[in-house]
């Protein structure tokens, strides 16, 4: 009976369009209960022991949907979860059809030779949203400009950016973890978008202004910058 069911969800995925394949999951786009939907499938990893694979995959799936709900409850935009299939480890999420990534938005502004000032509002908003998320003790784990979306007609920052891909997220109140989260974003931001140091500084300033707990986090960020993301285990 269980195998029939696995077939049912996988049969459905066959009819949807694969849009991204990563090391951890495949992402499909289709229609579910009449709505445009993104399906994230954590497929089995044959290189792992089956029991360990099942456990890790299950934990990451639950972690991802929990973080989404926690963020939404705090007023941080994240896609709606429609359905979770724990047998095939598929998450069915709201598809923000006409949204673009912050990455593409910044690129198009840079290419159009517009001044960077028109991105200031966006940097402020991003700082605010991340501060709010960290105040809820949600660590995203994979902050990049590709994992933030802007809804249509939203370039100027009328509404908040939508955070996506909570696959590596977890709950922690430690300034260290929040510092590393920001460090990962800084690295990704500056390597994806050259010559945007001033913009990222603006993001950090907005983060500092929005979060009461920010001084400890920024102190940690400075430490992490010197040593890298991983803590030294020497001694």
């Amino acid at each position: 009976m269980a195998s029939d069911e696995i077939k049912a969800t996988l049969c459905f995925l066959d009819k949807t369009k694969l849009i991204k394949q990563g090391a951890e999951a495949r992402v499909y786009r289709g229609t579910f209960l009449g709505k445009p939907t993104i399906i994230k499938e954590r497929f089995p990893k044959r290189y792992r022991h089956p029991t360990l694979d099942e456990k890790l995959t299950h934990r990451r799936t639950t972690q991802e949907v929990r973080s989404i709900l926690r963020c939404r409850k705090a007023g941080i935009s994240a896609p709606v979860v429609y359905f979770v299939d724990y047998t095939t480890h598929c998450i069915f999420l709201e598809d923000l059809v006409s949204a673009i990534t912050v990455r593409d938005h910044i690129r198009s502004i840079q290419e159009s030779k517009q001044t960077i000032e028109c991105l200031h509002m966006l940097a402020d908003k991003m700082g605010e949203v991340l501060a709010k998320m960290h105040d809820e003790d949600v660590i995203h784990g994979d902050l990049t400009t590709s994992n933030m979306l802007l809804r249509e007609g939203d370039g100027a920052g009328d509404t908040d950016p939508v955070l996506i891909d909570f696959g590596l997220s977890y709950i922690s109140g430690l300034p260290e973890d929040k510092g590393v989260d920001l460090y990962v974003l800084e690295k990704a931001f500056l390597s994806t978008h050259p010559n945007t140091e001033a913009l990222f500084d603006r993001l950090l300033k907005s983060y500092m202004a929005s979060s009461k707990k920010s001084p400890a986090v920024i102190k940690k960020l400075d430490e992490v910058r010197l040593r890298g993301r991983k803590r030294s285990m020497v001694g």
């Binding site: 949907v65 929990r66 989404i68 709900l69 709606v80 979860v81 429609y82 359905f83």
Partner: peptide, 12 residues
């Protein structure tokens, strides 16, 4: 949206 999210996630 809020209602759907809670219904979908309540088991975990």
């Amino acid at each position: 949206d809020s209602v759907i999210c809670r219904m979908a996630i309540k088991d975990v």
